[in-house]
Amino acid sequence: MAVTRDDVAHIAGLARLAISDDRMTELAEQLNAILGHMEVLQQVDTRHVETTAQEGNEALPLRPDAGPRFAMHRRLDEMAPEMRDGFFLVPRLATHEDTSDAS
């Protein structure tokens, strides 16, 4: 599965990275070289391998449904690039309809 410049452009878009044209080719080559070393994994027979049990991890601990809120030693506006009236501000989306499908 060779990585093309278009693939790089696509994943750069997914990762919100702007890649210049000249670096695009270079990166495609590097990714191909790296992924070339990964091909060896296809030869491994893993049909009988169970992966969900992570070694060292016990079951997920659960937290009581109570405060207090985790203490913050600095204000948000000391960290945020832009705030107004308590809101974080970001450049307007190209269109409202680019809405999140968060839920």
Binding site: I11, A12, L17, L27, L31, I34, P91, L93, A94
Partner: peptide, 27 residues
């Protein structure tokens, strides 16, 4: 707008190795 802000921020903010690994991982 927003998308350009994301892309510029992350492209200027991350060095070459981080960029390479983020792309590899996304792929």
């Amino acid at each position: 707008g927003l998308r350009a802000m994301y892309e510029r921020t992350r492209s200027r903010g991350f060095g070459p190795e981080v960029t390479r690994r983020v792309l590899l991982g996304t792929y």
